[in-house]
Write a protein that binds this DNA or RNA. Structure first.
Lengths: 217, 217
DNA sequence: AATGAAATTCAATGAACGTTGAAATAAGTT
DNA sequence: AACTTATTTCAACGTTCATTGAATTTCATT
């Protein structure tokens, strides 16, 4: 490990945690460096600017994420006899790596997903930043979905994916709202419960929309 | 209209627009009052504090929204012969008032929904604020869903609603990401296309999850 | 041990922040 | 027209912001 690397990682960890809680504008460099127990000036020394630090936080885990999701997709396609994976498997390959890391990857991953959930729905970052980090992978998944639903109109695939994406992102936002709504009968932190339910729910939606002629039927 | 009411509304309009674009912490009182073309001090004079102004923005349209959504639900329940509305109708009653106002209600409504989408997925506001403004209505809808799916386990209803909610919220966030992904084949601003597809997609998910014994089948 | 670069500390910068009090203006009431 | 109250303007408050330059310390390499 290089000389300043421990400091760099401590700053990234604190930035990740605080950005996840209050967003980019809701956190100051001073709060981050105080949480990391390092001098205020070190954030700018290591990352150049607050905005660069934000990008570094997003990038750090995005690469691993994209890699493992792609591997999972290729795996299930290789296992399918005709090279076309099932809808349920595609949905699982897309969501499982995220939910699994949020559930069992430690607090850093949990913060990371909370941050992604937040910026995903914001006009300031949602379009540009998310596109930059995740679109190549998503395009690959959509290609798989098209093969799994060969009769589908393209628009129905895109809207179905869009619904899927929204459901998934709200899940790992873990705002706890469903806990209140259900009076404690379900817990937003119980991502294993989601893993069980997301593929059948979403796959059924895809089939209803994409296997019939047009959205009305 | 009372004396300062025009100023109040101009401040609310500008605050709504700017908060939607960059979030609570990303906007300053000075930017808001400059956009509204009023003196800086007037925001504090009329609303007391920045935070109170934020709440006032959220509250302004929430009441109308809750009212019309509840009316729609009661309407379809009254029209159903046994008082139990269909899944598709419930989903439509929940989402249509939102999507319709975002599409045809003018730029203020569009900003409002973008703002709601943003804070819905944030830990800072998502749990507490959303609960405060919308939970009573959501509980009413969940009761209707339970009646439409009498065999369902409660947990499956809550998780299905959760997926529904995530899909809906991402829709009216309108970040434009789906536009890029589809190379312009679909447009995130085409909410009529969503109105057509959301009820069948979501209803199929509900049925798959809630009409079978457990999530695995 | 000496050297030199990298990392860290310290103090300070100018700018912008939310908020406020006092003065000025506008409008409704008598 | 005089009075009263609500609204608006103006200037400033103290605080905090991201960032920086210079001084100091740390550490790997000689």
């Amino acid at each position: 490990m290089k000389r300043g690397e421990k400091t760099r990682q401590k700053i990234l960890d604190s930035a990740e945690k605080l950005f996840a809680k209050r967003g980019y504008h809701g956190v100051t460099i001073r709060q981050i460096t105080e949480d990391a127990k390092v001098d205020t000036a070190l954030a700018n020394y290591h990352f150049g600017s607050k905005r660069n630090l934000f990008d570094a936080v997003l990038l750090r885990r995005a690469e691993e994420l994209n890699k493992v999701r792609l591997e999972k997709l290729e795996e299930i396609e290789a296992a399918a006899e005709n090279g076309v994976a099932s809808l349920e498997d595609i949905i699982d390959a897309f969501s499982h790596p995220l939910l699994d890391r949020s559930e069992r990857g430690g607090p850093g991953w949990k913060s990371y997903f909370a941050l992604i959930a937040q910026i995903n729905n914001s006009p300031e970052w949602g379009g540009k930043l998310m596109t930059e980090y995740f679109d190549p992978l998503v395009r690959r998944f959509i290609a798989a979905l098209k093969r799994a639903l060969p009769e589908a109109h393209e628009e129905d695939i895109y809207w179905s994916y869009h619904f899927f994406s929204g459901a998934l992102v709200l899940t790992y936002a873990e705002t706890g709202r469903i806990d209140n709504l259900s009076d404690g009968k379900v817990h937003s932190s119980d991502l294993d419960a989601v893993q069980l339910r997301m593929p059948p729910f979403i796959a059924a939606g895809f089939r209803r929309l994409c296997e019939t002629s047009g959205p009305k039927s």
